[in-house]
Design a binder for these strands. Structure first.
Length: 668
DNA sequence: CAGAGACTCGAGGAG
DNA sequence: CGAGTCTCTG
């Protein structure tokens, strides 16, 4: 126990003590206050030392990302040599439960997890089957609605048309043997509701429940936590209401705000000592977030001294604002002469990255765009996964449709369409239908060849060899080798990487597929290369950098136009997250610009909300005038300290700092 | 059937 | 500006 509390501050120790003594605990952990350390200490406390009340398998530790789960597992293993089999993401834990009880949950044994593009294709089929037009009813729009609906646990009817599409989508999912992300959670809740004995089993097993990033939970996830903690009530949730930035994904900030009411005997512990940022950066962030009303309240203080003020830079007075931002950021990075990994450029939306990338590339400043094109979203990777899925699960129609045309086999849309008809009539999978369907001789031959590809004893081969064989015999590898695609080498390289550093690490291909279906942006291999990170603010949550650049703080870009109407407080939390990523230097840039044909000429309202004490105006110095000695007829001599178009700010020898028009000044 | 070229439309964040 | 769709041709 004592060893456990080493290097923890008072509040963190309190959190550990509260967790072991049992009952509900809410740890409100501000940005940079050692949240992960506290969470890991709390988790460890339940299985370590004399006071430990649980065995490793009796601790359920839930996170949102694989990265966070991995960190908990690794740190506890390294320090205490204990494996935590039930530390994982909400989705991976629920998936494991659903696999174990698939029949009780009303699922087929080999059900598949469908990712976003599979969901879209299912929805497209469903909409077309209803005789509706996919131009008028766009799959991506309706998928959004369906996902949001599934995230809310609402029983409210939305509209007749929604219900029609919703149930067509669900039955098509069922027909194909797939479930979506939301249903991984929802079907687990149903399982527990319909089988209290199963719930009871897990309640008895999980004597401690720990939850990371609690502010990001949605209604079903919160429901699930209530169910599981219903017996003993030993639940410790760690989160920060000021960093709730995922409402658009169904997260409900009210889960954390209402925790004290939902769990009346809850202990609430605040971690307010910030170990990350200097005083001015924290002051700026605090003064901004104070403008929100819906918060539990927390005041972070820093023990790292005042540090540098937040620098505010206006750009675009002399040209294109976005380009100028990129230039200034690149200048700062070059002149700082620090390792590149010290720098991050955090943007509101992905589309703002381009000028930044171009400028850094031009100057050969190594950089990476994080989260943009996810490894598992790449065409070639999805193709390979589809091949493997069809190999393991021949009923997977979506995968068959995806790969039967790559490489081209002379079986196109029209043939697939009639094949689908035939399959439907005979209640067959496309794979089985392909065996029986009569085709033109040429097609019949290739179809037979295709079927034969999957007929080998892959279960008894090394995973990597099996996939390699499949990809070679199918001509998939050859297709890329002979391709004229300008990034064919990248693609071949990606496939190679997938086989050697991922597939090879799994003992069974279905295991690999299960993992792959839950892979996320943060799971991409970390490169050790020293480079500047460019990423969205959302993707930056949980990270920290010596120097953070925040470009495009222009009203209706940030805060985003939509958010101004929908949820300005969440947008303000996003700004708070952005500023608090910085340890020592934070630079906010703004300036009028046009984008997608609209003109944005107002600085972000958030700039005004930051108390001026924490800000330093650091505008670009004009080459010609700033620093020059000037003479004014009435005010006498002085020196120019800032230039804003024709208005000069001059420090006069006798009259102090005054703004005057350029026209009344003469150079000395 | 496959590939090329013209065309339209929309552009927020992501497990 | 790019992705997705449409239309034409071999």
């Amino acid at each position: 126990m004592n060893a456990l509390l080493e290097n923890l501050n008072e509040a963190q120790c309190e959190a550990v003590a509260a967790t072991i003594s049992g009952g509900p605990v809410l740890v409100l952990a501000g940005a940079g206050t050692g949240k992960t350390t506290a969470l890991i200490a709390c988790t460890a406390a339940s299985v370590i030392g004399e006071n430990a009340k649980a065995k490793e398998w009796e601790v359920l530790a839930l996170t949102f990302t694989n990265k966070a789960a991995k960190e908990i597992k690794e740190r506890i293993f390294r320090k205490y040599n204990k494996e935590l089999p039930w530390a994982g993401t909400f989705h991976s834990v629920c998936l494991r439960i659903l696999r174990r009880w698939h029949a009780e949950a009303g699922l087929r044994k080999d059900f598949l997890v469908f990712g976003e593009d599979e969901q879209k294709s299912v929805l497209k089929t469903a909409i077309l089957a209803l005789g509706m037009d996919t131009k008028e009813y766009k799959p991506s729009d309706w998928l959004e609605k369906i996902a949001r609906y599934k995230d809310t646990e609402s029983t409210e009817k939305i509209s007749g048309i929604f219900n029609k599409i919703y149930s067509a989508y669900n039955s098509e999912m069922e027909r194909l043997g797939g479930i979506d992300f939301a249903d991984i959670i929802n079907k687990t809740i149903c399982l527990f509701a319909e089988h209290p004995e199963i719930l009871e089993k897990y309640r008895r097993q999980f004597r401690y429940i720990l939850v990371d990033e609690y502010q990001d939970t949605n209604a079903p996830q919160n429901h699930l936590l209530k169910m599981l903690s219903g017996g003993h009530g030993n639940i410790c949730c760690v989160g920060d209401d000021d960093q709730s930035i995922y409402s658009w994904r169904g997260a409900e900030i009210k889960n954390i705000l209402n925790f004290p009411r939902e769990y009346p005997n809850a202990k609430i512990i605040r971690l307010e000592e910030n170990y990350r940022s200097t005083g001015n950066i924290l002051g700026a962030a605090n003064s901004l977030i104070k403008n929100n009303t819906g918060r539990l309240g927390k005041d972070l203080h820093s023990n790292l001294g005042e540090g540098e003020k937040v620098r505010l830079v206006e750009v675009g007075k002399y040209g294109d604002a976005a380009r100028e931002e990129a230039t200034m950021i690149a200048d700062s990075i070059e002149s700082a002469k620090k390792p590149l990994s010290n720098f991050a450029i955090l943007i509101r939306s992905g589309s703002l990255s381009r000028p930044l990338e171009e400028e850094l590339a031009k100057r050969q400043i190594s950089h990476r765009l994080i989260g943009a094109m996810k490894f598992y979203d790449r065409m070639e990777i999805r193709d390979v996964i589809a091949y493997v899925r069809l190999l393991c699960f021949s009923f997977d129609d979506l995968s068959l449709k995806r790969i039967i045309g790559s490489p081209k086999r002379g079986i196109g849309d029209a043939t697939i369409k009639s094949l689908e008809e035939f399959a439907k009539q005979n209640n067959l999978s496309l794979f089985d239908a392909l065996k029986k369907f009569s085709l033109k001789p040429k097609q019949a031959a290739t179809a037979k060849e295709f079927i034969e590809l999957f007929n080998f004893d892959w279960q008894h081969m090394a995973t990597k060899d099996a996939v390699q064989q499949l990809l070679e015999n199918s001509g998939y590898i050859k297709m890329w080798q002979e391709s004229k695609d300008f990034d064919k080498d990248d693609r071949l390289h990606n496939i190679h990487d997938l086989l050697n550093s991922v597939v090879a690490n799994f003992d069974s291909l279905p295991d690999f597929l299960e993992q792959a279906s839950l892979m996320t942006a943060d799971d991409e291999r970390d490169t050790n290369e020293d480079s500047v990170s460019i990423m969205t603010i959302h993707a930056a949550k949980g990270l920290e950098f010596d120097t953070v650049f925040l470009p495009a703080w222009q009203d209706e870009i940030f805060p985003h136009r939509q958010s101004i109407k929908e949820n300005l407080e969440e947008e303000r939390r996003l700004a708070y997250v952005a500023i608090t990523r910085a340890k020592r230097h934070c630079v906010i840039l703004y300036g009028a610009r046009s984008q997608f044909g609209d003109f944005y000429d107002m600085p972000s309202r958030f700039i005004d909300e930051i108390a001026s004490d924490f800000i330093e105006i650091a505008n670009r110095k004009s080459k010609s005038n700033v620093g020059k000695l000037v003479m004014h007829e009435e005010l006498g001599s002085g020196v120019v300290i800032e230039e804003n178009d024709d208005i000069m700010t001059v420090a006069f020898k006798d009259k102090g700092i005054k703004k005057v028009s350029k026209n009344f000044l003469t150079k000395i």
